[in-house]
């Protein structure tokens, strides 16, 4: 019995270690942060050397990069897209607007905190964060995955009611 547990733990550790080197990012440009993504993923900053590449469908992606402010209309699609993704999946909040509303704190159309609606693993601060900051965010995420700490998707399943209640409050579902 003990042996099996040890083997399972080791298996998960190996998986996490491998997983962090192949992260596919969903190509969903939710907001203005998307303008710094082409420099990040093309030749100059080249995120692909970390194994990070953009991908077009939600079913095969690992990272949901929320690039900036989240409008109510977008949030609805964002939640749908997040739920379509297969675990393990990670959410990165990009820019100050995902943290506390940023410059749009007083806008009637923009929600202020992303982590009320989706479990965020890493935040990248700034408006707008530079490609260097984005890469640093990716590196942090990789480190968290390696250590087994990027468990946002597990939290989402465990606290499903909490997230759904928050979503319902603003989306009127």
């Amino acid at each position: 019995m003990e042996l099996q547990e040890t083997l399972e733990e080791g298996y998960v550790e190996i998986l996490d270690h491998l997983r962090k080197r192949s992260l596919w990012m969903l190509h969903y440009c939710t907001a203005c942060g998307a303008v710094e993504l082409p420099p990040t993923i093309t030749s100059r900053f080249d995120a692909e050397r970390f194994g990070i590449a953009p991908f077009v469908t939600s079913r095969q992606s690992d990272i949901l990069l929320v690039t900036g402010y989240i409008n109510i209309k977008t949030l609805k699609r964002l939640v749908t897209v997040y739920e379509q993704m297969l675990p393990p999946k990670y959410v990165i909040g990009f820019g100050s607007c995902t943290i506390n509303g940023g410059i749009y704190w007083d806008s009637y159309a923009v929600v202020k905190r992303l982590d009320l609606y989706l479990p965020v693993d890493v935040y990248i601060a700034g408006c707008m964060p530079t490609p260097m900051a984005v890469l640093e965010g990716f590196r942090t995420l990789m480190k968290l995955i390696d250590e087994g700490k990027a468990n946002g998707w597990r939290k989402y399943i465990e606290n499903y009611d909490y997230y759904k209640a928050n979503q319902r409050k603003v989306l009127k579902w």
């Binding site: 506390n100 509303g101 923009v110 202020k112 905190r113």
Partner: peptide, 10 residues
Amino acid sequence: KYATEHYEAR
């Protein structure tokens, strides 16, 4: 007012 009532701040 609308934003403070509807969206929770950090």
